[in-house]
Design a protein around this nucleic acid. Structure first.
Lengths: 191, 191
DNA sequence: ATTTCACTTACGAACAATCGTTCGCAAAGA
DNA sequence: TCTTTGCGAACGATTGTTCGTAAGTGAAAT
């Protein structure tokens, strides 16, 4: 039982790495089997399909963001503080689960129709809640009167390069990175 | 001759759209042929290979950015002004060539080894020149003392969502968008 | 301690489908 | 007549997955 969990886990981990490095479509089941040390057909004792793996990665990652924003919304804090917490959340997830998050960001569109629809609902909901925090901040005069969608997407995507640059063991810690990105987005680059 | 150009152009345009919507690997030559109104084999009277199309899209887009930064570097302007011009450049390209730029951003990694190497050289060079402008701004005290790489990548990627949100005919013009994004990145969201 | 039994895991072979591309040949245009 | 363009058929390669079967595993029964 414990061993089975380990094998299955290994498959998902190696798959995530391959999806990240080559993309979902460019990753073959045979290649994955090779990484895990099995024959292709043997994989199917552990997984239902190749797409099942992508689904798990995408929805697990999504859940992390949702859990995060759930906590942040509960906070008794100003929009400024909540926004900072959100940026911190994204950076934490991007540095701690860099592999999965890259796949989540770049490969979700290869989900099959039904699952894709589910996924997009989650995403739309998340974006809407994020946007509400921005809107609130504008209302209260904490934020500049910028189009909320523009602010939302600029902030959302401005954290999406991390996986490609950040390597654990870099001189800069996630905390340092977080500080700089927060500064840039909230106070601007200009001195 | 004119007709040939038109046909070939049509193929590249339809291919770009398909690559944007489904990804390079998920786009089949048969599907492309269908869009163009030809049989698959007939495509090869106009193109050398499927990858040739991807190459053209990627390098043509790259050239636009390079041309842009060439002009900007020549300007007798402060780093602040140059940065603004760079952001404007990215937004202009993203709104005017939204299709190609999306492919350029998301599909370059499917270029074959040799060409990929070339491509990455161009990109590294561009990023380095962009970063130098940021560094200069920090030196002169125009910009905050943020890690230049972090500033670079945050700015670079913060413009990459446009293709997904921007549709010609939206209430917001590219100029409006540009204004908001510049404000956000340079002066920050905080009032 | 040994045997039995059910269940999980692994394998080799093969499947149908799809992929990008080639080839010989005909039609069309200059 | 020569070159360009288009087509149908087919190529070899690769794709995700299935199937029958054998080996391994752990608990229950002898």
């Amino acid at each position: 039982m414990a061993k089975k969990q380990t094998r299955k886990q290994l498959i998902f981990e190696e798959a995530a790495k391959l999806f990240r490095d080559k993309g979902y479509l460019a990753t073959s089941v045979r290649e994955l089997a090779d990484k895990v040390g099995l024959e292709p057909s043997s994989l199917y004792s552990h997984i239902k399909s190749k797409e099942e793996i992508l689904q798990k990665i995408c929805f697990d990652s999504a859940q992390k963001f949702i859990d995060g924003i759930n906590e942040i919304e509960k906070l008794n804090a100003t929009p400024s503080e909540k926004l900072k917490a959100l940026i911190a959340l994204h950076i934490t997830i991007a540095t701690e689960d860099s592999t999965s998050v890259t796949v989540f960001n770049d490969e979700w569109r290869h989900l099959s129709q039904d699952v894709l629809k589910e996924f997009l609902v989650l995403r739309r909901d998340y974006e809407s809640r994020f946007k509400n925090i921005i809107k609130k901040g504008i209302e209260l005069g904490e934020f500049k009167n910028i189009n909320p969608s523009i602010a939302l997407y600029t902030i959302l995507t401005s954290v999406r390069w991390l996986h490609y640059w950040y390597k654990p063991g870099r001189q800069l810690s996630p905390t340092d990175i977080e500080k700089d990105i927060c500064t840039l987005l909230i106070k601007g680059l200009k001195e």
